[in-house]
Nucleic acid binder design. Sequence first.
DNA 1: TCAATAGTGTCTGTCAGACACTATCGA
DNA 2: TCGATAGTGTCTGACAGACACTATTGA
Lengths: 296, 296
Amino acid sequence: MDNAERDFLKNYSADIYEKPSATVDMLIFTVGEKEKTYRELPEKTLELLLIKRGGHPFKDQWAIPGGFANIDEDLYSSAKRELMEETNLKDIYMEQLYTWGDVGRDPRTRVISTSYMALVPKEKLNFEAGDDAAEARLFSVNLHEIGRKEVKEEGRITQLDTEYLLTLSNTDEDISLNVRIMSKKKVLGSSIEETLEIIHSDLAFDHGKIVYYAINRLRNKVEYTTIAFNLIGETFTIGELQSLYETILDVHYSAPNFRRKMLPMLKETDDTQDKNRGHRPAQVYRLSDEALFKNK
Amino acid sequence: MDNAERDFLKNYSADIYEKPSATVDMLIFTVGEKEKTYRELPEKTLELLLIKRGGHPFKDQWAIPGGFANIDEDLYSSAKRELMEETNLKDIYMEQLYTWGDVGRDPRTRVISTSYMALVPKEKLNFEAGDDAAEARLFSVNLHEIGRKEVKEEGRITQLDTEYLLTLSNTDEDISLNVRIMSKKKVLGSSIEETLEIIHSDLAFDHGKIVYYAINRLRNKVEYTTIAFNLIGETFTIGELQSLYETILDVHYSAPNFRRKMLPMLKETDDTQDKNRGHRPAQVYRLSDEALFKNK
DNA sequence: TCAATAGTGTCTGTCAGACACTATCGA
DNA sequence: TCGATAGTGTCTGACAGACACTATTGA
């Protein structure tokens, strides 16, 4: 650094223009189980942590937890801190999702928000302990397509509008939130650009869009990485793993084929868990280190 | 909106805490050609637009073009504006990449920067016209692995460090910039977290990391979307397309296999271009609409 | 005829889905 | 014996890579 640069930095003022606020939103996903008969596999559901807003705007509405990015803290650290505040956990899988910067997305002031997604196995989650004094609850997440329309110009498809219904429900307290999202896929050059519009949302701010985006990212990555293993314990049976994948992706696999697909990335453990389950006890596996490092 | 909320918003002040600055960085990629003999295919190179910084800090160093996000402008619009300022083009493919928020990444003040990537076919690019009065040049991009080290703890691999050499060169002006990046892949839960460190960089700020990130994103998406078609004209021969893919991915395909892989997403045109090329004239194709909408 | 790209045919191995079958347990 | 999950075997079709071959052009 030369003298000119030193002088420049000394006299630099960052406050010439009005700045947007920078915040971090944290989407914490886990997978809950509902016990059925003693012999049937429990039914799993993908769950998302939401907090009830105590103040304006959107008072008493449910929202994704988040907070301001401190001026002297890396954005990544802000996200980790937010995760810690909500769950009291560290060493949890977390990735940056997207940065939301539309002008009107917060009625108070201009807010640019970077969203992160964290995946927590239910057994580690004791969110009552670290819930940041706010009212926090887990909501079952369901996302379904409810309609689509192709827009044609001169015989060529130029736009594809798809409407999705996102349902967030907490059965304990009988809360059910609906979000209707319109995804508009338009031709942009030789690719497609997707824009999201909220048709209706029971969630605060533009959080409906963010949840929609996160679920899609999760589903995508589940198919080509080992990300899903973050939602289950260290060891598991292939049956449990299958039901996890089926829950997240909302699909059904045939057990033999799923087994063959997964076996190359699994390592057998000594355990042969499962007793009193009314059927042949399953072998217990864990994710192999090699598979871990093949992630893109 | 009730009265309480109206009052709240009226009295809300966003200036209690010091805020970071929000900026947008724009990575503009194109593919350049170097003519060879009359009958050989021109050699392609992936190129990136860089500008030479006129002021401090990093004065006279090369950097990714960018600017502040205006307070009354969607982040997406800021990016589009930046693209327009640099290339004088709109309706160009552009996507958000990542948001960089480390505390020390700008010596002036705290800056959180959202990076976008744009792909422009060379024939449309006339960047002299709209170059924002700054010195802007295209640089050939090369990224290679130059070493790796596995860190083991108790026999299990826990970390994978890979060093990459990124070379940016402009042969017209005989400029060659080197960046050495260390990618550290660590186990985080049941997934891998990649952190990037700059070992050495001839680029300003942390722009070496951003370029590294962008090239990886581009290569990834080239393999499962039609994103690469944004770097070529509307119509093309399969040979041209193959050389484009080979350039971006730094691989070699066998012509018959590449043809078979691509044919399902192509549509034959009436043209049978190519004359005076010293070999059998090739059929001209364009991307089919159906393939476009299959993009994820 | 040669050197270059364009394009066809064919074989092989891998992998995903369909499906028939066996194994093991508790009620 | 039943119903549940665990697990094996096998067939099929799709697809990717290897490679041999033909087609067309200008020098």
